[in-house]
Design a binder for these strands. Structure first.
Lengths: 339, 339
DNA sequence: TAATCATGCTAATGCGTTTAAGCACTTTGG
DNA sequence: CCAAAGTGCTTAAACGCATTAGCATGATTA
């Protein structure tokens, strides 16, 4: 168990000052007019003994950690997981590392995680805000900390965000069902006033208006155990007998499918906001509103990096289009996006 | 944008020394015989001004970060995601925080992530080791850093680990199919010599021996694009015409289902190692070998916390039983574990 | 009465870096 | 020819906290 080697060891061994070594290590050799010979000598020695600076000390001194905190609703949801992956890759190439945590959409947990990241002095934040975290986000904003929200935003808060066009996505999904001739098109959504949920509801209602249909809305509480949610949905299905259902999230769709699994209910047409790898495997396959994951990740990381570089003082609020992926194996039709 | 408040500010405002404040804040008031009156006065003032110590400085000084690094194959895989959740919850209650990262099973990335965590001085490691990281793990071991491997281990390395009984799980799955009368039972696995894969193969082979069947094994490379894997599987299916398939991981099963989706192939019976929320929704539903997630998380965190407390010098290597969850809706049978 | 002890606190040092300021000399420009 | 600028480094002060060793009191003991 060899002793950890310090920058002062390097300096001593080479007969120079710690400062000089530090300059060279931080690429300031030229700027600080250190001779090429010494620069090379130091670099070689550092490589030889395998010295690595103590990042904690470095961060304490500089105030920078080269870490981005990713506070996400649920990392096990494929939509979020995929975005996390893309962000991680892009950040990596810029020398930043990502640390992630799941909030389960619980305000207290979200606040705690943001505080944790703040305690650890992460350089920037990417957050899916749950309800009731306005003050915490506001405090980050007031401290001028680089920050981008996504998937939803906080009305009235002048923060950067990247979201998809939830209204249009939901409208398209509902309109698609209406055009197929379905008459009793239900929306299954959450008890939630978050913006993305609100907008999906609005999109659904707009389509209902356009096609002069009756709305059937079921709100579910997903924080309780899943069984209760399933029971609630089953009651709704028996009651209202929808011939088509638009689920406002992919996990609502999954829970809904479980509710439909028992064969006493007839299988309505199903559309989900957010896709899922397995949706294409179902019989019948499930149409989905697919968010432009790659573009979202791009915008997120670029907006954040801009702020980290000190540019981009003006807030950036981006709305990206979603795409309806139509899957109807029973009718022999396939989307071109299929693989 | 208010200035960050320091421990020295507290001390000055209260007319006491920094040392005293530090003692009180770290719960050493009694031990250091600080009077109750002063203790209360300091605590109250700290709460009033909302002082929070700089964790970086603290860590630099103490060498402790109260952070556990979780290096996992793929956080978007439900099996890993669920374990991560449980670990996070248990660690949290002990004052530890979790930081996670996905390796995608790539050795270079795994090594880099472990180094990253090491640079950040995490207090302990929980790792699903990919191949080729023996040296890195060994180096952690040599530095006496608290460490537990899981899902697989590294043969010959005397490290703590927690795994499930892969041999028995695979045997049970294969035997189940044999008992149902299937004759051409295939194994679909990875090109991988990791222990869990090796053991699942061994379990399959033992069952093949027991029931005097012919083995049909397809190895797949999942690091390439999925299309190639699907094509490979389809070729195998057409060639060998298995009437039952045992997939060695849940994502192999998902890819396999995509390969089977086209209706030119007859649907064989399917069993997967590791369960998935959606498996029970398929028609026909999919039987799975389910690992005891809760027990695994318990053992992992307990083993690690033991080491962090300074106890537990002897290495702990735990093998937990897996359970076969039989799902056969077509036959009207259901497992009692079903919900 | 002096020696001892418990009490309640503080001064000083260290953790491993970065960085502003400087130093002793040499070169350059007008 | 002399001030200004350049050269190649180093000194020392942070960064924000924890901790060891110790110091001044007053109380207790012998």
């Amino acid at each position: 168990m060899k002793k950890k080697i310090l920058i002062s060891d390097i300096a001593r061994d080479l007969g120079v000052s710690v400062t000089t070594v530090s300059f060279i290590l931080n690429g300031k050799a030229k700027e600080k007019r250190i001779s090429d010979g010494l620069t090379k000598r130091v670099l070689d020695y550092v490589k030889k003994v395998g010295y690595k600076p103590n990042e904690l000390a470095k961060s304490l001194r500089t105030g920078k950690t080269k870490i981005i905190g990713l506070v996400i609703e649920d990392i096990s949801n494929p939509f979020f997981a995929n975005i996390a992956r893309l962000i991680e890759a892009k950040a990596y190439s810029k020398g930043y590392r990502i640390l992630y945590c799941s909030t389960d959409n619980q305000p207290e947990k979200t606040v705690e995680l943001i505080e944790l990241f703040r305690d650890r002095h992460v350089d920037g934040y990417i957050i899916t805000p749950s309800e009731g975290v306005r003050d915490t986000i506001d405090s980050l904003l007031n401290s001028h900390l680089p920050l981008v929200l996504f998937d939803r935003y906080i009305p009235g808060l002048n923060a950067n965000y990247v979201i998809s066009d939830n209204v249009k996505g939901a409208y398209d999904a509902t309109a698609h069902l209406a055009q197929r001739g379905y008459k009793r098109i239900a929306l299954v959504t959450l008890y939630s006033s978050q913006t993305q949920m609100r907008d999906r509801m609005n999109g659904y209602m707009r389509a209902i208006d356009t096609y002069q249909l009756q709305p059937y809305v079921k709100k579910v509480n997903m924080e309780d155990d899943e069984q209760a949610a399933i029971q609630g949905m089953r009651a709704f299905l028996k009651d209202q007998q929808p011939d088509a259902i638009f689920f406002a999230t992919n996990y609502l769709a999954i829970t809904g499918l479980k509710a439909l699994k028992q064969r006493d209910l007839l299988m309505p047409a199903v559309v989900s906001y957010d896709d899922h790898t397995l949706f294409k495997l179902f019989t019948p396959t499930i149409t989905a509103v697919s968010q432009p994951i790659e573009a979202i990740a791009d915008q997120l990381i670029n907006t954040l990096l801009n702020q980290l570089d000190g540019h981009g003082k003006e807030t950036k609020q981006v709305v990206l289009p979603s795409e309806l992926i139509v899957r109807e194996s029973s009718l022999g039709q396939t989307s071109t996006k299929e693989n």
